[in-house]
């Protein structure tokens, strides 16, 4: 077992160097349904951390609490040491259903975050063009969302999140509405982006393979109510050919190990 498995007990959890997002004692209930109970987590700067778990474990709820879109019943979120309760410019969100404005072109969609911040049109469109190229959509600036495929739409969503230059990107199952081939390509691109963007990624997924493939760190959540059950740091070298990762022994072992742990929750 080469993957470093960090059990939940605080004693064995080494404080990550320089956490950018600190989650302290977050609890959340919807009526009598308890979604999250006492979540304590640190997200290391510059790393990609996945929140992984079966449906109903509250992973999206936790992400939206970090984003400031949902209020927690208890606990606090700190970004860069400052407690936050609402959305802020240092965090950017990528939505599961893309959340693109169907009446606006790809360019305006990407520039929308900057538009809301009052940046001048020429300036924000230049930035938007840059990130549209960065996510591989150059030439599609003037297309409307309905003219783009699911994968391309999510690239627009990603470019929008990148263009506001936030330190933390919050991705809520971004590839779940994208077909399988595009998802694989997307995951490869995300690995590349992560290495050249120097940003912190918090990534929600229900796919074990996806989490192991892209993450520096995987937080396993258990359902009803959502709690942190395990933290795993797969030691996988992602500098080479991304296709080789799928055959990497550590990758396969880690996937297998997580599956053994999650099996009990499958219906």
């Amino acid at each position: 077992m080469r993957a470093a498995v960090l059990r939940k007990e605080p004693s064995s959890m080494p404080a990550p160097i320089d956490p950018i997002v600190e989650v302290r004692g977050i609890s959340k209930s919807y009526g009598s349904t308890e979604a999250l109970r006492g979540i304590d987590l640190d997200f290391p700067r510059g790393k990609l951390t996945s929140l992984l778990g079966p449906s109903g474990c509250g992973k999206t709820t936790l992400l939206k609490i970090i984003a400031g879109l949902i209020k927690a019943n208890a606990g606090s979120i700190a970004v860069d040491g400052k407690v936050v309760t609402a959305p802020g410019p240092e965090r950017a969100f990528v939505f599961q259903d893309f959340a693109l404005m169907p009446w606006a072109t790809a360019l305006r969609n990407v520039a929308f975050g900057l538009e809301l911040r009052g940046k001048a049109r020429a300036e924000r469109e230049e930035i938007a063009r840059h990130y549209i190229a960065e996510v591989g959509l150059a030439g599609f600036e003037d297309k409307y969302p309905h003219q783009l495929s699911g994968g391309m739409r999510q690239r627009v969503g990603l470019a929008r999140a990148l263009s506001v230059d936030a330190d933390v990107l919050l991705l809520d199952e971004p590839f779940s509405a994208v077909d399988e081939q595009n998802r694989r390509k997307f995951q490869e691109d995300l690995i590349r982006l992560r290495s050249n963007q120097n940003k912190t990624f918090i990534f929600v997924t229900h796919s074990i393979e996806e989490a192991v493939y892209i993450s520096d760190r995987i937080v396993l959540l258990s359902p009803r109510p959502g709690r942190v059950s395990q933290i795993i740091e797969p030691e996988i070298d992602r500098s080479g050919d991304p296709d080789l990762i799928h055959r990497d022994k550590h990758y396969l072992d880690t996937v297998q190990e997580i599956w053994q742990g999650l099996k009990q929750y499958a219906e």
């Binding site: 879109l69 959305p87 259903d97 959340a99 809301l116 506001v164």
Partner: peptide
């Protein structure tokens, strides 16, 4: 209107006015 579109506007810091003029009015058009 899709709730995520409203969350999107909020997460990118839309003011109340911007939310109504740039999202809600157009989405309901």
């Amino acid at each position: 209107i899709s709730p995520s579109l409203i969350e999107m506007a909020r997460s990118y810091g839309a003011s109340r006015r911007a939310l109504y003029l740039k999202i809600i009015l157009w989405a309901a058009l």
